[in-house]
Amino acid sequence: MKKITYNLIIVAFLSIFGCNKKENNNQPQKEQMENIQVSDYGVTAKGDSIRKFTLTNKNGMKMEVINFGGIITSLTAPDKNGKYEDVVLGFTKPEDYFNGNPYYFGALIGRYGNRIANAKFTLEGKTYDIDKNDGPNSLHGGKQGFHTKFWNIEPVKDAKFPTLKLTYTSADGEEGYPGKLSTIVLYTLTDDNALEISYEAETDKPTVVNLTQHSYFNLSGNFSKTILDHELQINGDKFTPVNETLIPTGEQNAVKGTPFDFTASKAIGKDINAEDDQLKKGKGYDHNWILNGSGLRSIAKVFHPESGRMMEVLTDEPGVQFYSGNFLDGKFENKTGGKNEFRTGFCLETQHFPNSPNQASFPSTELKPGQKYQSKTIYKFSVKK
């Protein structure tokens, strides 16, 4: 009774002084916070607590993100019967994310997505040695890249849709890269069932930057099934062939007449086992496509006939790495009761090209003081019956 009486007194006081008047501009903030829930996720071996942010749009689509690695641990999408199921691969135990995440499941990748040859590059006459974590090369920013960092995450209160702002500052010399790099990433879950990702970065010294997101998708909703029956279309007439260590040779080859031709939609598994030197080197598809057009545009579509799920990818990047899950090895449990086996997930990593710092003919990834790195990618989900 005392609590009720106290509340009534407060309400009466506010009413008398006109302080309880509802402002329309505050309402979206209230709705926004109702669509973002924060909870405990786990504790690292060092005792650091990890938080999970759950975003929900008006349709009931959900995305879960943790502040370790900016990792997307879950993302649901509807099938042709309206059933929402998780469509991104991940671990069943939080500690598997904290203890290396060998597949980079769901992680933000930086400073440099993809590979840099011999783990070195030259910038303004100075050679930089970076972390060698993939044979002779550097992969995805090094062993302690952005996928291993604690990101500060805050819900954006004045956003139209549920949005998270992730920030991380990489120190000068981290993993061998020059310059202090300040990075901002926005994750937005829109009401048309799209995940929008916006990237920004600034530096105090000349450096190289190539940020991306490393979610693996399986639109069947069953992570024990392969993705070979998914039908893929890529809006790219050329790709960058690779050497034995998956470093681009510098060539830009036409896809026409090769297993790499996805200009018309076809099943991922149709040509994946063809007698092709590039497929042998990648153990399947693990290559960069040179995308047609410029600016934010549709660059890929994936359709899963059985579920009816469709995913469209839009980006302003010049390239996309299509990876068919060739190094998934069944060592970890998946989220639907089986194992994360060979080719049970695919990635479409929007990017500048691999090894661009060592290839003058590739689009530049250099960022200088006073410049702002900006990029945007959208993964949009729909149903095709």
Score class of each variant (00 low, 15 high):
M1R: 10
I9P: 09
V11Y: 14
L14D: 14
N20D: 10
N24L: 03
N25W: 07
N25E: 14
P28S: 04
Q32M: 15
M33W: 02
E34H: 12
Q37K: 14
V38P: 06
D40Y: 06
A45E: 13
A45H: 06
G47D: 13
D48E: 14
I50V: 14
F53N: 01
T54E: 13
L55E: 14
N57V: 08
G60N: 02
M63V: 01
M63I: 02
V65E: 03
N67S: 05
I71C: 06
P78E: 01
D79Q: 05
D86P: 09
K93Q: 14
K93D: 15
D96C: 03
Y97H: 12
F98Y: 15
G106Y: 02
I109H: 04
I109W: 07
F121H: 03
I130S: 07
D131V: 04
N133Q: 11
D134T: 10
G135I: 09
N137G: 10
L139P: 04
H140E: 12
K149S: 12
N152T: 14
K157T: 09
A159Y: 05
P162K: 04
K165W: 00
G176L: 13
G179Y: 06
I184F: 03
V185R: 09
L186T: 11
Y187S: 00
N193C: 06
N193Q: 11
Y199E: 02
A201V: 02
P206R: 04
N210A: 13
T212R: 11
Q213K: 12
S215V: 02
Y216V: 03
Y216A: 00
L219R: 08
S220H: 06
S224R: 08
S224A: 11
I227L: 07
D229R: 08
Q233K: 15
G236L: 03
D237Q: 15
D237L: 13
I247Q: 14
N253R: 12
A254C: 07
F260N: 13
D261L: 03
T263D: 13
K270N: 09
I272S: 06
I272E: 09
A274M: 10
D276I: 01
L279I: 10
K280I: 11
K280W: 08
Y285L: 02
G293W: 12
R297I: 15
H304A: 14
H304K: 09
P305A: 04
M310S: 10
D316Y: 03
Q321L: 07
S324P: 12
G325P: 02
G325Y: 00
N326M: 02
N326C: 05
F327A: 10
L328N: 07
L328P: 06
G330I: 07
K331G: 13
E333R: 01
E341A: 09
E341N: 12
E341I: 00
C347K: 01
L348A: 05
Q351I: 00
H352Q: 05
F353K: 00
P354I: 00
F362A: 04
P363W: 04
G370K: 04
G370Y: 04
K372M: 07
S375W: 04
Y379I: 05
